[in-house]
Design a binder for these strands. Sequence first.
DNA 1: TAGCCATTTAGCTATATAGTTAAATAACAT
DNA 2: ATGTTATTTAACTATATAGCTAAATGGCTA
Lengths: 93, 93
Amino acid sequence: MNEGIFKAMSDSTRRKIIELLKEGPKTAGDIANQFPYAQPTISRHLNVLKNANLIIDQKEGNFIIYRLNTTILQEWLGWLFEHFGGGNNDENE
Amino acid sequence: MNEGIFKAMSDSTRRKIIELLKEGPKTAGDIANQFPYAQPTISRHLNVLKNANLIIDQKEGNFIIYRLNTTILQEWLGWLFEHFGGGNNDENE
DNA sequence: TAGCCATTTAGCTATATAGTTAAATAACAT
DNA sequence: ATGTTATTTAACTATATAGCTAAATGGCTA
């Protein structure tokens, strides 16, 4: 499994970005406005998510529109369940 | 959701420790022997997992036995699915 | 062209963390 | 008491990353 996706998801700002994008595509500016951080800070977070392939960017005139890469997110969740779900460890001792 | 569990799970060595412990309880030494790192390094990883409440330690004579806290892991996976599973973003544009 | 707007990139600081070796702790055995 | 074993804690180094401000990029509009 891609290490990047874990790092990407391990930051709460980035998880909130993901949740925002579940509502639908949004511009970088719209996303940045939801947070108390400077816009370049959010830009870098977006870049981390993009490198992890969790979001897709698309230039639209003067804006950059981001949307979720639902597939990757689903694959990640699936992988997590495969590896860590249904854990039956011995309860003895 | 507890931030610690994300940080804990975002490291591949720690994920391998979790997978090892799915087989059953193991001593700190047994765990350390599975990795090419010095034992104190693994000890600190174990501590991170313990602080995230993902594993439980138990002193057994001269050894410390670690085992999975299956509940927490399951809860985490459940939370992930609630928040990030079933993502239906608009496919338009 | 000039200027504006949206966004990223660059350069910086502060903090966190993975790795190391050496020392401390704690329980057992002699 | 002394030594041995299992493990953690301490002290250090190197690297990564979140935040900032300032500058650069790229597309509009006039």
